[in-house]
Amino acid sequence: MTELFVDPLVGYGFVRTGLAAALIVGVVSAVLSCLLVVRHQALMGDAISHAVLLGVVLGYLVMGRPGILPGALVVALLSGAAMTYLERHTSIKLDAVMGIVFTFAFALGLAIMSAVEPRGIDLFHVLFGNLLGVSSVDLVVTAVSGALVLAVIAVGFRAFELWSFDPQMARAVGMRVTGFEYLFTGLLSATIVASLQAVGIVLVIAMLITPGAAALLLTSRLRSMMLLAVAIGLAASLSGFYASFHLDVASGPAIVIAVSLLFALALAVAPLRRRGLARRAAEPVAAADEVDAPAR
Protein backbone atom coordinates (compact mmCIF):
# COMPACT_ATOMS: atom_id res chain seq x y z
CA MET A 1 0.00 0.00 0.00
CA THR A 2 2.63 2.55 1.02
CA GLU A 3 4.52 1.59 -2.08
CA LEU A 4 1.57 2.58 -4.21
CA PHE A 5 0.39 5.73 -2.45
CA VAL A 6 3.11 7.17 -0.22
CA ASP A 7 6.38 6.41 -1.94
CA PRO A 8 5.68 8.55 -4.98
CA LEU A 9 5.09 11.52 -2.71
CA VAL A 10 8.18 11.01 -0.60
CA GLY A 11 10.48 10.50 -3.53
CA TYR A 12 9.74 13.52 -5.65
CA GLY A 13 8.73 17.04 -4.68
CA PHE A 14 7.09 17.70 -8.03
CA VAL A 15 4.78 14.77 -7.41
CA ARG A 16 3.58 16.30 -4.15
CA THR A 17 3.03 19.61 -5.92
CA GLY A 18 1.07 17.86 -8.64
CA LEU A 19 -1.16 16.04 -6.19
CA ALA A 20 -1.88 19.23 -4.28
CA ALA A 21 -2.84 20.99 -7.51
CA ALA A 22 -5.12 18.11 -8.53
CA LEU A 23 -6.92 18.16 -5.19
CA ILE A 24 -7.45 21.93 -5.25
CA VAL A 25 -8.84 21.70 -8.77
CA GLY A 26 -11.10 18.85 -7.73
CA VAL A 27 -12.63 20.89 -4.92
CA VAL A 28 -13.02 24.26 -6.61
CA SER A 29 -14.30 23.09 -9.97
CA ALA A 30 -16.77 20.78 -8.21
CA VAL A 31 -18.36 23.71 -6.38
CA LEU A 32 -18.56 25.74 -9.57
CA SER A 33 -19.99 22.77 -11.47
CA CYS A 34 -23.00 22.73 -9.15
CA LEU A 35 -23.90 26.32 -9.99
CA LEU A 36 -23.29 25.78 -13.71
CA VAL A 37 -25.47 22.67 -13.77
CA VAL A 38 -28.42 24.16 -11.87
CA ARG A 39 -28.22 27.32 -13.96
CA HIS A 40 -28.25 25.37 -17.25
CA GLN A 41 -24.94 26.98 -18.18
CA ALA A 42 -22.83 23.86 -18.26
CA LEU A 43 -21.10 24.83 -21.48
CA MET A 44 -20.05 28.24 -20.19
CA GLY A 45 -16.99 26.50 -18.72
CA ASP A 46 -16.35 24.91 -22.09
CA ALA A 47 -16.41 28.27 -23.80
CA ILE A 48 -14.19 30.16 -21.40
CA SER A 49 -11.65 27.37 -21.16
CA HIS A 50 -11.20 27.21 -24.92
CA ALA A 51 -10.74 30.96 -25.08
CA VAL A 52 -7.99 30.61 -22.50
CA LEU A 53 -5.65 29.13 -25.12
CA LEU A 54 -5.28 32.63 -26.56
CA GLY A 55 -4.29 33.92 -23.12
CA VAL A 56 -1.74 31.19 -22.65
CA VAL A 57 -0.07 32.03 -25.95
CA LEU A 58 -0.15 35.80 -25.48
CA GLY A 59 1.02 35.55 -21.88
CA TYR A 60 3.95 33.40 -22.90
CA LEU A 61 4.94 35.69 -25.77
CA VAL A 62 4.88 38.76 -23.54
CA MET A 63 6.42 37.47 -20.31
CA GLY A 64 7.68 33.98 -20.96
CA ARG A 65 6.61 31.06 -18.83
CA PRO A 66 5.54 33.12 -15.77
CA GLY A 67 3.17 35.00 -18.05
CA ILE A 68 1.05 31.99 -18.91
CA LEU A 69 -1.31 32.04 -15.93
CA PRO A 70 -1.80 35.82 -15.80
CA GLY A 71 -2.36 35.85 -19.56
CA ALA A 72 -4.87 33.04 -19.25
CA LEU A 73 -6.72 34.85 -16.48
CA VAL A 74 -6.96 38.12 -18.41
CA VAL A 75 -8.30 36.47 -21.55
CA ALA A 76 -10.70 34.29 -19.53
CA LEU A 77 -12.13 37.36 -17.82
CA LEU A 78 -12.37 39.33 -21.05
CA SER A 79 -14.02 36.55 -23.02
CA GLY A 80 -16.41 35.78 -20.16
CA ALA A 81 -17.33 39.45 -19.91
CA ALA A 82 -17.73 39.65 -23.69
CA MET A 83 -20.14 36.72 -23.64
CA THR A 84 -22.18 38.15 -20.77
CA TYR A 85 -22.26 41.55 -22.46
CA LEU A 86 -23.30 40.25 -25.87
CA GLU A 87 -26.02 38.12 -24.33
CA ARG A 88 -27.45 41.05 -22.43
CA HIS A 89 -27.28 43.60 -25.20
CA THR A 90 -28.16 41.68 -28.35
CA SER A 91 -30.95 39.32 -29.29
CA ILE A 92 -28.44 36.47 -29.69
CA LYS A 93 -28.80 33.86 -26.98
CA LEU A 94 -26.01 32.72 -24.71
CA ASP A 95 -25.30 29.41 -26.44
CA ALA A 96 -24.67 31.07 -29.79
CA VAL A 97 -22.72 33.92 -28.20
CA MET A 98 -20.48 31.41 -26.44
CA GLY A 99 -19.89 29.54 -29.68
CA ILE A 100 -18.85 32.73 -31.45
CA VAL A 101 -16.56 34.13 -28.78
CA PHE A 102 -14.76 30.96 -27.79
CA THR A 103 -14.09 29.67 -31.28
CA PHE A 104 -12.69 33.07 -32.24
CA ALA A 105 -10.33 33.23 -29.27
CA PHE A 106 -9.36 29.57 -29.70
CA ALA A 107 -8.68 30.04 -33.41
CA LEU A 108 -6.68 33.20 -32.77
CA GLY A 109 -4.60 31.37 -30.17
CA LEU A 110 -3.96 28.48 -32.54
CA ALA A 111 -3.13 30.84 -35.41
CA ILE A 112 -0.56 32.76 -33.37
CA MET A 113 0.88 29.51 -32.06
CA SER A 114 1.26 28.01 -35.51
CA ALA A 115 2.89 31.19 -36.81
CA VAL A 116 5.29 31.79 -33.91
CA GLU A 117 5.80 28.21 -32.72
CA PRO A 118 6.80 29.21 -29.19
CA ARG A 119 9.24 26.69 -27.74
CA GLY A 120 7.96 26.89 -24.15
CA ILE A 121 4.39 25.85 -24.76
CA ASP A 122 3.42 22.27 -25.33
CA LEU A 123 -0.01 22.41 -26.97
CA PHE A 124 -0.80 18.91 -25.77
CA HIS A 125 -0.17 19.94 -22.16
CA VAL A 126 -2.24 23.10 -22.46
CA LEU A 127 -5.14 21.14 -23.89
CA PHE A 128 -4.98 18.07 -21.70
CA GLY A 129 -2.96 19.00 -18.63
CA ASN A 130 0.32 17.92 -17.12
CA LEU A 131 0.19 17.56 -13.38
CA LEU A 132 3.81 16.66 -13.03
CA GLY A 133 4.82 19.89 -14.68
CA VAL A 134 3.20 22.08 -12.00
CA SER A 135 5.77 24.47 -10.56
CA SER A 136 5.58 25.76 -7.01
CA VAL A 137 4.62 29.19 -8.37
CA ASP A 138 1.78 27.56 -10.32
CA LEU A 139 0.66 25.84 -7.15
CA VAL A 140 0.51 29.10 -5.26
CA VAL A 141 -1.53 30.71 -8.04
CA THR A 142 -3.86 27.71 -8.07
CA ALA A 143 -4.25 27.71 -4.29
CA VAL A 144 -4.84 31.44 -3.97
CA SER A 145 -7.38 31.69 -6.78
CA GLY A 146 -9.12 28.52 -5.58
CA ALA A 147 -9.39 29.84 -2.03
CA LEU A 148 -10.75 33.13 -3.32
CA VAL A 149 -13.45 31.42 -5.38
CA LEU A 150 -14.51 29.20 -2.47
CA ALA A 151 -14.61 32.15 -0.06
CA VAL A 152 -16.85 34.21 -2.34
CA ILE A 153 -19.29 31.34 -2.81
CA ALA A 154 -19.32 30.45 0.89
CA VAL A 155 -20.02 34.04 1.97
CA GLY A 156 -22.55 34.69 -0.77
CA PHE A 157 -24.22 31.29 -0.67
CA ARG A 158 -27.75 32.61 -0.07
CA ALA A 159 -27.43 35.07 -2.92
CA PHE A 160 -26.09 32.41 -5.28
CA GLU A 161 -28.93 30.10 -4.31
CA LEU A 162 -31.67 32.68 -4.91
CA TRP A 163 -30.06 33.95 -8.12
CA SER A 164 -29.77 30.41 -9.48
CA PHE A 165 -33.30 29.32 -8.64
CA ASP A 166 -35.21 32.50 -9.37
CA PRO A 167 -33.27 35.33 -10.99
CA GLN A 168 -36.53 37.26 -11.42
CA MET A 169 -37.14 37.38 -7.70
CA ALA A 170 -33.48 38.18 -7.11
CA ARG A 171 -33.84 41.21 -9.32
CA ALA A 172 -37.27 42.12 -7.97
CA VAL A 173 -35.90 42.38 -4.42
CA GLY A 174 -33.08 44.61 -5.55
CA MET A 175 -30.15 42.27 -6.16
CA ARG A 176 -27.77 43.65 -8.76
CA VAL A 177 -28.15 40.73 -11.12
CA THR A 178 -25.94 42.08 -13.90
CA GLY A 179 -23.03 42.65 -11.56
CA PHE A 180 -23.64 39.20 -10.17
CA GLU A 181 -23.34 37.64 -13.61
CA TYR A 182 -20.00 39.31 -14.19
CA LEU A 183 -18.84 38.18 -10.76
CA PHE A 184 -19.82 34.62 -11.55
CA THR A 185 -17.97 34.76 -14.86
CA GLY A 186 -14.93 36.01 -12.96
CA LEU A 187 -15.11 33.09 -10.52
CA LEU A 188 -15.40 30.69 -13.42
CA SER A 189 -12.40 32.22 -15.15
CA ALA A 190 -10.30 31.98 -12.01
CA THR A 191 -11.27 28.32 -11.60
CA ILE A 192 -10.39 27.45 -15.16
CA VAL A 193 -7.01 29.11 -14.92
CA ALA A 194 -6.38 27.32 -11.64
CA SER A 195 -7.17 24.03 -13.37
CA LEU A 196 -5.00 24.71 -16.39
CA GLN A 197 -1.97 22.72 -15.28
CA ALA A 198 -3.84 19.83 -13.76
CA VAL A 199 -6.37 18.85 -16.39
CA GLY A 200 -5.88 21.27 -19.27
CA ILE A 201 -8.38 23.51 -20.97
CA VAL A 202 -10.32 20.81 -22.78
CA LEU A 203 -10.71 18.39 -19.94
CA VAL A 204 -11.49 20.99 -17.29
CA ILE A 205 -14.90 21.07 -18.96
CA ALA A 206 -15.63 17.68 -17.46
CA MET A 207 -14.61 18.86 -13.99
CA LEU A 208 -16.95 21.84 -14.39
CA ILE A 209 -19.96 19.67 -15.21
CA THR A 210 -19.68 16.07 -14.08
CA PRO A 211 -19.22 16.35 -10.28
CA GLY A 212 -22.24 18.66 -10.00
CA ALA A 213 -24.36 16.57 -12.34
CA ALA A 214 -23.53 13.40 -10.40
CA ALA A 215 -24.31 15.10 -7.09
CA LEU A 216 -27.63 16.42 -8.42
CA LEU A 217 -28.74 12.82 -8.97
CA LEU A 218 -28.26 12.08 -5.29
CA THR A 219 -29.26 15.19 -3.36
CA SER A 220 -32.16 17.59 -3.03
CA ARG A 221 -30.47 20.67 -1.57
CA LEU A 222 -27.91 22.96 -3.13
CA ARG A 223 -25.69 22.90 -0.05
CA SER A 224 -25.51 19.11 0.14
CA MET A 225 -25.12 18.97 -3.63
CA MET A 226 -22.00 21.11 -3.33
CA LEU A 227 -20.55 19.02 -0.52
CA LEU A 228 -21.17 15.80 -2.39
CA ALA A 229 -19.73 17.26 -5.59
CA VAL A 230 -16.59 18.22 -3.68
CA ALA A 231 -16.26 14.64 -2.42
CA ILE A 232 -16.67 13.37 -5.98
CA GLY A 233 -14.16 15.88 -7.31
CA LEU A 234 -11.63 14.93 -4.63
CA ALA A 235 -12.08 11.22 -5.25
CA ALA A 236 -11.65 11.73 -8.99
CA SER A 237 -8.51 13.85 -8.57
CA LEU A 238 -6.96 11.43 -6.14
CA SER A 239 -7.65 8.25 -8.07
CA GLY A 240 -6.86 9.90 -11.40
CA PHE A 241 -3.60 11.18 -10.04
CA TYR A 242 -2.37 7.79 -8.83
CA ALA A 243 -3.57 6.10 -11.98
CA SER A 244 -1.62 8.65 -13.96
CA PHE A 245 1.53 8.03 -11.93
CA HIS A 246 1.47 4.25 -11.90
CA LEU A 247 0.00 3.52 -15.31
CA ASP A 248 1.93 6.32 -16.99
CA VAL A 249 -1.27 7.85 -18.38
CA ALA A 250 -1.61 11.61 -18.91
CA SER A 251 -3.02 13.13 -15.74
CA GLY A 252 -5.93 15.06 -17.31
CA PRO A 253 -7.51 12.11 -19.08
CA ALA A 254 -7.00 9.91 -16.02
CA ILE A 255 -8.87 12.35 -13.77
CA VAL A 256 -11.67 12.83 -16.29
CA ILE A 257 -12.13 9.09 -16.72
CA ALA A 258 -12.28 8.75 -12.94
CA VAL A 259 -14.94 11.43 -12.58
CA SER A 260 -16.96 9.92 -15.41
CA LEU A 261 -16.91 6.53 -13.68
CA LEU A 262 -18.13 8.20 -10.49
CA PHE A 263 -20.97 9.77 -12.49
CA ALA A 264 -21.92 6.31 -13.78
CA LEU A 265 -21.91 5.08 -10.19
CA ALA A 266 -24.22 7.92 -9.14
CA LEU A 267 -26.49 7.08 -12.05
CA ALA A 268 -26.69 3.49 -10.85
CA VAL A 269 -27.35 4.42 -7.23
CA ALA A 270 -29.87 7.23 -7.87
CA PRO A 271 -32.96 5.07 -8.55
CA LEU A 272 -32.47 3.26 -5.23
CA ARG A 273 -32.39 6.58 -3.43
CA ARG A 274 -35.44 7.89 -5.23
CA ARG A 275 -37.45 4.88 -4.15
CA GLY A 276 -36.45 5.60 -0.57
CA LEU A 277 -37.66 9.18 -0.88
CA ALA A 278 -40.97 8.15 -2.39
CA ARG A 279 -41.64 5.90 0.57
CA ARG A 280 -40.90 8.80 2.90
CA ALA A 281 -43.43 11.01 1.15
CA ALA A 282 -46.08 12.29 3.52
CA GLU A 283 -48.63 12.92 0.80
CA PRO A 284 -49.55 10.87 -2.25
CA VAL A 285 -48.07 13.36 -4.68
CA ALA A 286 -48.81 11.22 -7.71
CA ALA A 287 -52.54 11.42 -7.09
CA ALA A 288 -52.46 15.21 -6.88
CA ASP A 289 -50.51 15.31 -10.13
CA GLU A 290 -53.39 13.81 -12.02
CA VAL A 291 -55.74 16.54 -10.86
CA ASP A 292 -53.48 19.36 -11.96
CA ALA A 293 -53.12 20.64 -15.44
CA PRO A 294 -49.65 19.89 -16.76
CA ALA A 295 -47.06 22.64 -16.56
CA ARG A 296 -46.66 24.62 -19.72
Binding site: V38, F165, Q168, M169, L216, S220, R221, L222
Partner: peptide, 16 residues
Amino acid sequence: AFMPQRAALDWDFPAQ
Protein backbone atom coordinates in the same frame (compact mmCIF):
# COMPACT_ATOMS: atom_id res chain seq x y z
CA ALA B 1 -43.18 40.44 -2.88
CA PHE B 2 -43.40 39.07 -6.40
CA MET B 3 -44.78 35.66 -7.25
CA PRO B 4 -43.64 34.56 -10.74
CA GLN B 5 -45.48 32.11 -12.98
CA ARG B 6 -44.43 28.68 -11.85
CA ALA B 7 -43.53 27.74 -15.43
CA ALA B 8 -40.75 30.35 -15.19
CA LEU B 9 -38.90 28.21 -12.64
CA ASP B 10 -36.88 25.01 -12.87
CA TRP B 11 -38.55 22.56 -10.52
CA ASP B 12 -35.64 20.11 -10.76
CA PHE B 13 -33.59 22.64 -8.80
CA PRO B 14 -32.00 21.03 -5.73
CA ALA B 15 -34.08 22.58 -2.98
CA GLN B 16 -36.45 21.40 -0.33
